[in-house]
Amino acid sequence: MTAFIEPIVGRYVHVEIDGETNRIYFEENGSGIPLVCLHTAGSDARQWRHLLTDKEFTKHFRVIAFDMPWHGKSNPPDSGYGTEYKLTTASYTATIRAFCKALDLDRPVVMGCSIGGRIVLNLAIDHAKEFRALIGLEAADFQQPWYDTAWLNRPDVHGGEVCAALVSGLIAPQGPQVARNETLWGYKQGGPGIFKGDLYFYRVDGDLRGRTASIDVRECPLYLLTGEYDFSCTPEDTLRTAAGIKGAEATVMEALGHFPMSENPAQFRRYIAPVLDDIRARNGA
């Protein structure tokens, strides 16, 4: 066989979340420190494919990315069909912890983007001992809304088109066109109301203002990185959040927006490589 086959392996794991079995699709590659990656609202784990195939990172990290229930190739739980999907701080946290437990991951690193970045802060607040490091991309304790999410799921507006069109402006213009297109393609493929349901966590339920000061980075190091073109979670939002957490590290990434790992993988690599090196050094790996 001469065709190029990527080293990523995808499988399904059955995970019990809040009393119900969820069939969760995940992809992985590499060995070493487990590194669990969380996709943005309304998209799926394909956003992480460049990190998953990075030859250097996967020498030292077992990189794992999963589709949240209702996203990508992870279907809704059986009881979920016909109901309105709403992600909450509690359900999101439970999903991540259950997934890590199902795979028997030993104090994984968790890196999340956008809603994934927000929930990483909640993991740092309530479950720091379970993780060896936490990385929040486009993460803040709160950010100001800039559109009405009611537009995301209504019969007279194409959900895929409007979701992609709304987030298109969050991508920095410097990225390769194909990577920018691929990032938006994920948004065009989301299920009806799923982006909106994720944003219930982001906009309504997951306001962490006043809680992040309790984060102890000596227990679990916390890295925050935000793209300069992200006007949803702005660099100022991240810097304000980091300023309230003693010892948290914050970086503003140039020429990147809200989807650094997928919109411009090479540029993102420049910023995430030192973070992963630091985590390796702390863990003697």
């Binding site: 800039w146 709304l166 006007f231």
Partner: peptide, 11 residues
């Protein structure tokens, strides 16, 4: 940054 999208301008 911040001047690159119709909705960043409204924000």
């Amino acid at each position: 940054a911040g001047w690159h999208d119709l909705l960043s301008l409204t924000k």
